[in-house]
């Protein structure tokens, strides 16, 4: 997908967000909507301008903008190297050549998926079992450590985090959706 298309999709999505806020705000009392309404209208105007601006600029200018984007965030653009490749251990990947758009996209999907998986575990099992599973899985599946070493590192980490949050900070635990099934409450 072209960068411009992506930018347009995002801008339209944000536009929808502001319109939604505006519609919701109109239901509120005059004082409650005093600030939200002007802000959402401002957002709509700004995004309208942004849409026009990014679509009407000549390809040259767009190119300049892209270049600026690349140089300023020179370190950030996504680099290659497979997710679970052992070679990515210890030193940074030495593949400056820009990878195909697809691989970036698939890694992004992976990143989103990992966060989602972690949150899902968290909801199901509660904080510490999920941290244990996630960390152990991440360390061993990325082959950064041998699974035995990963297990040791994970255990030490979980104990430290547990002591800090539960013992030192007295956090009350959430036991996860599954706990009632295990415990029958």
């Amino acid at each position: 997908m072209k960068r411009l298309t992506q930018e347009n999709i995002l801008a339209v999505a944000l536009l929808c967000f502001f319109v939604g806020i505006l519609v919701l705000s109109l239901d509120y009392s005059p004082r409650a909507r005093l600030v939200p309404v002007p802000i959402s209208v401002l957002g709509i105007i700004l995004l309208g301008a942004q849409l026009v601006w990014q679509n009407l600029r000549s390809p040259d200018e767009l190119h300049v903008d892209m270049l600026e984007f690349l140089t300023r965030r020179g370190i950030n653009p996504v680099e290659g190297a497979e997710a679970d490749d052992a070679s990515s251990a210890d030193q940074s990947p030495e593949t400056p050549a820009a990878p195909g758009d697809l691989s970036v996209f698939s890694r992004e999907v992976f990143a989103f998926g990992k966060v989602l998986a972690f949150v899902g575990l968290f909801l199901l099992l509660g904080p510490f079992p999920s941290v244990f599973i996630f960390t152990f899985a991440y360390l061993s599946l990325s082959r950064h450590y041998h699974w035995a070493k990963a297990l040791v590192v994970t255990t030490i980490f979980v104990v430290i985090v547990y002591v800090l949050f539960v013992e030192v900070l007295d956090i009350q635990l959430y036991h996860g959706v599954l706990e009632p099934l295990v415990n029958n409450y």
């Binding site: 210890d90 972690f118 990325s142 950064h144 985090v161």
Partner: peptide, 28 residues
């Protein structure tokens, strides 16, 4: 390395998010 950093920091962050108010919704 990212392979160590990502799971450790994410773990601490999610527990921290939970700990701010004790609501599991905050993790979401």
């Amino acid at each position: 390395n990212a392979n160590i950093m990502v799971p450790l920091v994410l773990s601490v962050c999610f527990i921290g998010a939970f700990a701010t108010r004790g609501h599991v919704e905050d993790v979401i």
